[in-house]
Design a protein around this nucleic acid. Structure first.
Length: 425
RNA sequence: GGAGGGAUGGCCGAGUGGCUUAAGGCGGCGGUCUUGAAAACCGUUGGGCGAAAGUUCCGUGGGUUCAAAUCCUACUCCCUCCGCCA
């Protein structure tokens, strides 16, 4: 959410910045509401002052004179008036908030302007595309042949976009989760957390999933509870409504959770394989930091996520998402795209974003101390470190051999019980 | 699922209609004293809006009243006991 004051004082800037996101907004009515709000607030407050003064006088009267005091009759009217003004005020406030809640974040100046995916800018690449003396297979062929991915039974148990992982298919998933958590907690300074996988609507609103994107979420019937689409939601909300001592910033958290997404509107996309599932595992990195540090912290978090792919030895590139491709809450996002030889394409495996104070304002996360001792909003940053299912996909496709077996990267072997290769037995 | 109890400032805790725009204590910060520290003493110490005056906030939302932390009501969360249970 953008601040009421900021929006009302920078209508032109907002229009400009949101046009970069291919959004047209009409803020004429907004401005009128801001003016009305101001007037209502002033009148209500001056009447309240009057009322408070009169109340003090009434309190000083001897009890037997109170009921006849003309002040009481006067104040009855004043109170009625205040009630009316405050009711109107809370309507206006609610309308203003509705508008603010549906405005996306403004792109940072370092975000390239663009119309879509093709305008994202490659920032760097790491490693090289592997050479094969044969035509590399896609991960779902490999996985089915090796008996580690069972798409048919997954669909039988639940439905489309659900998968049963077996044997080393399950173990590899667990190994990757452990590797990622171990690296981020012991080498990158993150604190491990295991949050609830179900959250309430306030929490969903705090990070920006609600009210706009309810269609993407699984909601529990008859309850205000939702399955989380990413650990970002519960973890960012750890400090919702709190004021943190500034000296404690930055705070780093790493969390493994399953993620649940409806994938509405993606019909026909990535229908085969693990790429797009309704349920998938992810290790997420979340940071809370002072406003002036957030862009440095974003770069560091991105490097932390890249480390995992470097350890696994898989080629990838980093792209700076253009204005049209930015998510609703983000001011800037880097995607890490991993090379998939079977698909002959780069695919997103991590998305690292700076939300600046957009989520902090919604969730009311502030800090205080240091320097002027003022209370101010923190900045929040997060990124996948990494999407686990897609990492498994990358391993299968990058390390496959001609006979259909797959070499397990060295760094994972201590988590696979020493097993070095996934092969037909 | 049944029965009961509770929610007040960073923490503890007083407060059942009107100088409570919340007593007192602890903790924090500043000071006096001290070679230094401790103790003692003095002062200070929440958030939102506002340039300020001021206004608002005692779990949340409604209500009663000239006036609500205090009364009514619905809800949320926590605790205790019983039952069931990984």
């Amino acid at each position: 959410m953008l601040g009421l004051k900021f929006v009302s004082e920078n209508l032109e800037l907002i229009k400009e910045k949101l046009a970069l996101r291919k959004m047209k907004v009409d803020l004429g009515a907004f401005f009128a509401m801001v003016e009305e709000r101001k007037a209502l607030l002033q009148e209500s407050e001056s009447l309240k002052y009057e009322k408070n003064q009169a109340s003090a006088k009434i309190a000083k009267l001897p009890p037997n004179q109170r009921s006849q005091s003309p002040l009481i009759a006067d104040m009855r009217k004043v109170s009625e008036k205040i009630k009316g003004l405050d009711a109107r005020l809370s309507d206006v406030d609610a309308d203003l908030k509705d508008v603010l809640m549906t405005l996306p974040n403004l792109p940072h100046s370092s975000v390239p302007a663009g119309d879509g995916e093709q305008d994202n800018v490659v920032v760097r690449t790491w490693g090289e595309k592997p050479e094969f003396g044969f035509t590399p297979k896609q991960h779902f062929e490999l996985g089915e042949e090796l008996g580690i991915l069972d798409f048919e039974r997954g669909a039988k148990i639940t439905g489309a976009r659900f998968t049963l992982q077996c044997g080393l298919g399950a173990r590899m998933e667990r190994a990757l989760i452990n590797l990622m958590l171990d690296v981020h907690t012991t080498e990158h300074g993150y604190t491990e957390v295991l949050p609830p996988f179900i959250v309430n609507d306030t929490t969903m609103t705090g990070t920006g999933q609600l009210p706009k994107f309810e269609d993407d979420l699984f909601k529990l019937e008859g309850l205000n509870y939702y399955l989380i689409p990413t650990a970002e939601v519960p973890v960012t909300n750890i400090y919702a409504g709190e004021i943190l001592p500034a000296e404690e910033l930055p705070k780093y958290f790493a969390a493994y959770t399953p993620c649940f997404r409806k994938e509405a509107g993606s019909y026909g996309k990535d229908v085969r394989g693990l790429i797009r599932q309704h349920q998938f595992n992810k290790v997420e990195l979340v940071k809370f930091c002072a406003q002036e540090d957030s862009y440095d912290e974003l770069e560091k978090l991105l490097r932390n996520a890249e480390t995992i792919l470097q350890m696994l030895g898989i080629h990838y590139r980093v792209v700076n998402l253009c204005t049209a491709d930015l998510g609703f809450s983000a001011a800037k996002t880097y995607d890490i795209e991993v090379w998939l030889p079977g698909q002959n394409a780069y695919r997103e495996i991590s998305s690292c974003s700076n939300f600046e104070d957009f989520q902090a304002r919604r969730a009311n996360i502030r800090c205080k101390g240091k320097g002027d001792n003022k209370t101010r909003l923190v900045h929040t940053i997060n990124g996948s470190g990494l999407a686990v299912g897609r990492t498994l996909v990358a391993i299968l496709e990058n390390f496959q051999l001609e006979d259909g077996s797959v070499i397990i990267p060295d760094v994972l072997r201590k988590y696979t019980g020493g097993v070095e290769k996934i092969a037909l037995t």
